Structure formats: structure tokens, C-alpha cells
Simulated assay, not measured.
Amino acid sequence: MRLADFILRDMETILGQWEAFALTLLPAPADMKSLALRDHARQILEAVAKDLSTSQTKEAQLEKSMGRAPRLIGAPETAAQTRAVLRARGGFDINQLAAEYRALRASVLRLWIDACQTEAPHADDVIRFNEAIDQALAESISFFSVQVDQARNLLLGMLGHDMRSPLQTIQMTAVYLSNLNAGDKVSGAASRLIRSGARMQALLGDMLDFNRTKLGLGINIAPTDVDLANLLADELDQLRAAHPERRVELEVEGDSQGVWDGRRLQQLLGNLVTNAIKYGASDAPVRVVMTCGETDVSFEVRNRGPVIDGSSLDRIFDPLQRGLNQVKTYDTDGNLGLGLYIAREIAKAHGGEIAARSDETETVFAVRLPRRK
């Protein structure tokens, strides 16, 4: 008996075994009823049976074995993709999702071989069945991962947003204490609270910006008519105060008036200069060179220091990248490793771009911004 015929004939037996296995995947299925446990399973098996009955080329067979079967343009979600979304919302984890397909594969093949009795199973059916299950599993994992990532980003975004109010209360109370003149001990403790609160505020801001981009919303900007040179000079003054041991220079050429979100561009510059101070040579200045053209404005942050190799440059704007060849999530300086990533997103939100280059002479981060988006 061909496998496609067996699947369609014994569909209920196969589904019964699949449902029995799903019930063992506790705790997620504990409260799930039979219909929920079987959701889209019949459609997946019917699609597999149809695939087994359809001729295919060697090239198509290879693509499908790697989970890359072609999709029709405008086609709706497959049953495997829809099933993955429902499993993610039902509390399954990715191991439980994969286990269901493992059980399906084993159940179908075992029942089919038993049904064949003395007749030898068709080897090509086994190969093509495994390819079809691999394709369904690849579709499920892809959609499942998207659902999990989106849920995590939404949770982090809500958490970061809700944490701002109590943090602001802590900061305001600390400022109030520092103004009481209640002695050095109280003033010192209040100052530490203010500094720690500012660091937490920066971390929360980075996290919320990161989540906005991951949710497809992009960096939020509010452009107005501004003089960019004045804004950058003000930001550099604050950085010099925070790093009195380092020299930070600014050169401006041309008219720097334009329509931008000044606060965001100060954040962009601050991220780039802080990065240059942290990883550049301590005995050389960090130079910010701004050139203003008719339609756009460019500025570069230059520093001397270790050369950044090509592979690191290719991913230096990726999130959670820090240092020359390191991937970390947090350090003792209160850095999530999102500074360069957020800088790039701010430039993109203004319709601009940012690039990096590095050689034995210097490392340069170059930003180009149109005067009006």
C-alpha cells in the first residue's frame, strides 16, 4: 500500500496516536481539549498525502529536504504555520513543538509498515514523507519563533514603560534629599541615587528603543527646525564634563540649519563619541568633523586606536555587539551593547545613513543626514 493512500485511509488512527502523545507534553496541554490538540493536524497530513501523490524533480526534492519548498505568491499560511502560532499562544515551548512532529513521523511510519504486512514498503515514499515532515517542521519553527520573539518584545516594552514612573519618583525624591542640606552622608547618598537613577533611565531608554525597532515601529522622532552645530556642541560639552581626562574636538563647516529631532541626534552623537572614548587611544583626541552641503549634512566621529577588522565592521551596528570582537549583553559600565545599533536606527529614522571604516590611521563613524526628510 502506498503511504499517501494509507494516510488518507487511516487518518483517525494516526490522529488518535498524535493526540495521545500531545497529552504527555505537560504542562502546556493540560487544559487543552481534543479539538485544540488536533488543530490543523488533519490538514497537515492531507497536505503530506497530496505531496506524496505529486511528482517532483530532484531539485525540488533537495530544496524540500532542507525546509525550502517554494510557496505560491499570495498563498495563505500553511496548516503547519498556523499550528505553530496556536501552539506558541497555547504555552508550548519549541521542544514540545518539535516533539509533536517527531511523534507524528514515528507513528505514521510504524502504522504504515504494520499495515503493509508482507508487502515491502516503498522506499521512495519513506524518503518523500520525511522531506514533507521536515518542510512542515521548518515552517512551524519559523512561525513559532516569530511569535515568541514578538511576545517577548511586547513584554519587555511594557515592562520598560511601566518602570519609568517609579524610577522618576525615586529620582525626584533623591533630588529633594540632596537639596535638604541634611549633612554630607545624606547628600552623598542622594547623589549616588541620582547617578544610579540616570544610568537606569538610559538603560530603559535603550531597551524601549530596541523593542520599538524589533516590533517594526522604528525609532520615534519629532523633527523641528534646529541648528545642528549648536546641538552637537552642547552634547560634546556634557561628554567632556563626564570624561574630563579626554579631549573631544568639534569642527563645523557651512550652514547647519535643518529639520531634525535634535534630542535624538544628540543621542546619536553621544553614542558614537562614547564608543570612541571607550575603545580609542587615550592619548589622542576624539574629533567630530561636520560638513554642511546644500541638501544634506554630514559629520564624522574620528579616533585613533586599534584597527577594527573587516568581519567586525560588517556587524558592528548589530544589536548586542560590544568591543572589537565580543558579543555581550551587559557590562559594568551599564551598557547593553545597543549604542551603535540605536545610532544607526536614529539615522535611518531621519532618512539618513551611518557607516564605519577603520585602518591603521584612525577609526571613523560617518553620518549623513538630509536637511529635510
Rank of each mutant, 00 (worst) to 15 (best):
Q168E: 14
R195G: 04
S196F: 02
T173V: 09
I194D: 07
S178R: 11
Q171W: 03
S187L: 08
T169E: 11
V186N: 07
S187M: 15
L193C: 13
A174C: 10
T169A: 13
G197H: 03
A202D: 08
Q168A: 07
S178E: 11
S187F: 03
V186F: 09
N179Q: 09
G188M: 09
V186Y: 08
L177R: 00
A189T: 09
S191A: 15
N179S: 08
G197V: 04
S187V: 06
G197T: 05
L167Y: 00
K185A: 09
A174D: 07
V186E: 15
S196M: 11
T169I: 04
N181H: 04
V175L: 06
A174F: 11
A174I: 05
Q171P: 01
K185M: 14
L180W: 03
N179D: 15
L167V: 00
S191V: 12
I194G: 03
A198N: 10
T173S: 14
A189I: 05
I170E: 05
T169V: 06
A202E: 03
L193G: 13
T169K: 09
M172C: 12
M200A: 10
V186C: 12
I194E: 05
N179L: 14
T173P: 03
T169H: 13
G188I: 06
M200C: 03
L193I: 04
G188K: 10
T169Y: 12
G188E: 15
N179P: 00
R192F: 06
T173N: 15
L167S: 00
A182Y: 03
Q171F: 06
A182L: 02
R199P: 01
M200G: 01
S196R: 12
D184F: 12
L177Q: 02
R195M: 10
A182N: 02
K185C: 11
R192E: 08
Q168W: 04
A198G: 04
I170D: 01
M172F: 10
V186L: 13
V175D: 02
G183E: 06
R195E: 07
V175G: 00
K185H: 10
I194R: 04
Q171S: 13
T169N: 04
Q168M: 03
Q168G: 11
Q168C: 01
D184W: 15
A190Y: 13
L177Y: 06
N181P: 00
S191Q: 14
N179C: 10
S187Y: 05
A174P: 04
V175M: 02
N181C: 01
G197R: 01
L177F: 05
T169G: 07
S178W: 03
N179Y: 09
S191Y: 09
L193S: 07
